[in-house]
């Protein structure tokens, strides 16, 4: 199960994710992001330290938002203080594409 909390709406939006971001819960995040005005966003921050599990589909979804915002000259940030989740992000190279 995934719980998404909109901490800030925009233009620098911030969402907190808790629970599990995977193939079955991706729609929850999608619906929440869909509720934001993408065209107005300068940045979108995902705080994912509260996630217990994430899968490659979920990571792909986050990267997808990065590409979406980059097209609009925006940026995606990922805040995370969970060491194990961070290791996953580094192994996949998420940090490298988010912070060139």
């Amino acid at each position: 199960m995934l719980r998404v909390t909109v901490v800030e709406k925009g233009p620098d939006a911030k969402l907190t994710l808790e629970g599990s971001l995977d193939m079955s819960t991706g729609d929850v995040l999608r619906d929440t992001v869909g509720g934001l005005d993408i065209d107005d966003l300068t940045s979108l921050t995902f705080s994912i330290g509260g996630l217990e599990l994430i899968d490659s589909t979920g990571i792909g979804q986050l990267i997808g938002y990065h590409r979406l915002l980059r097209q609009r000259q925006g940026r995606v940030y990922i805040e995370n203080d969970n060491r194990e989740i961070e290791e996953i992000l580094e192994l996949i190279g998420v940090r490298e594409i988010l912070e060139p």
């Binding site: 599990s20 995977d22 193939m23 079955s24 996630l51 217990e52 599990l53 994430i54 899968d55 490659s56 589909t57 990571i59 792909g60 990267i63 969970n82 194990e84 989740i85 290791e87 996953i88 192994l91 996949i92 190279g93 998420v94 490298e96 594409i97």
Partner: peptide, 25 residues
């Protein structure tokens, strides 16, 4: 990785992960 769920890979195959890492890293 303990925090990485592989349930989607069981359905889609490891190739999904391979492609993700290939494109990203």
């Amino acid at each position: 990785q303990p925090r990485l769920s592989v349930s989607d890979l069981k359905l889609r195959g490891d190739g999904y992960l391979v492609k993700l890492v290939l494109e990203t890293k």
